[in-house]
């Protein structure tokens, strides 16, 4: 056997996949750090999350650029084409998750040392589930595991349930104590960031299904 016909393309596709997984790991960690900075009132940590987002954006741009170069120079077909198309979309989803982490860190900065109107329980729980979704999504992506992707996407229901619980609770607090409205609104923004991040994580599963089957399926309705 000689050199496989499209080795350059496949080596580069694998390298891109590694970059995607690395970026996913970074934004997953950013989410955890952002929520921790809020819970522990750690402004230094919050600022670090905001500063690190520049690096996320840079990595995302580089993945985009490399994908476009591969399209132009290697003209991939079939599952290779789908993998590259999915990479271009996935990278945006990951970058957005990074933006949501940054948004949460901004809230942490803004609240400063102000005492919290309630202990944060469901919000960190939401963040944990979102992180689990991202991590499991990336694993499924690496192992091309359709069932794992579907199981991961199902976690979005749990995030939505927690979001509704946080929403109802914060609304009640605002009705009972109008003086809390400013902070409660900020905390609601945090929950919304997490809920949106979970939707982007669900997209990871959708794109993996596309790579595997060639069909686009909405998992998130």
């Amino acid at each position: 056997m000689g050199t496989p016909p499209r080795r350059t393309l496949h080596v580069e596709l694998e390298a891109l996949q590694d970059e995607i997984v690395r970026l996913g790991g970074t934004v997953s960690a950013a989410l955890e750090r952002a929520v921790r900075s809020l819970k522990e009132r750690d402004r230094t940590l919050a600022q670090a999350v905001i500063d690190a987002d520049v690096e996320v954006n840079r990595a995302a741009l580089e993945i985009e650029q490399r994908s476009l170069t591969l399209l132009a120079t290697q003209q991939p077909m079939a599952s290779d084409l789908r993998a590259l198309g999915a990479t271009l979309k996935l990278v945006t989803d990951l970058e957005r998750i990074g933006d949501h982490a940054k948004g949460i860190a901004r809230v942490a900065l803004r609240l400063g040392d102000e005492p919290l109107i309630k202990p944060l329980i469901d919000v960190p729980r939401m963040a944990e589930v979102v992180r689990e979704m991202v991590d499991r999504g990336l694993q499924a992506f690496m192992s091309r595991d359709q069932d794992a992707a579907l199981a991961m996407a199902a976690l979005d229901d749990e995030v939505d349930r927690l979001y509704r619980a946080v929403f109802d609770e914060l609304l009640q607090i605002m009705i009972d104590r109008p003086g809390t409205i400013t902070q409660a609104t900020h905390l609601l923004m945090v929950a919304t960031h997490l809920e949106r991040a979970a939707d982007h994580a669900t997209n990871l599963a959708e794109w993996l299904l596309y790579v595997l089957t060639g069909e686009r399926r909405e998992l998130n309705d």
Partner: peptide, 8 residues
């Protein structure tokens, strides 16, 4: 077909 198109 997949194998041919992707050079595998």
């Amino acid at each position: 077909t997949e194998a041919y198109l992707t050079g595998r």
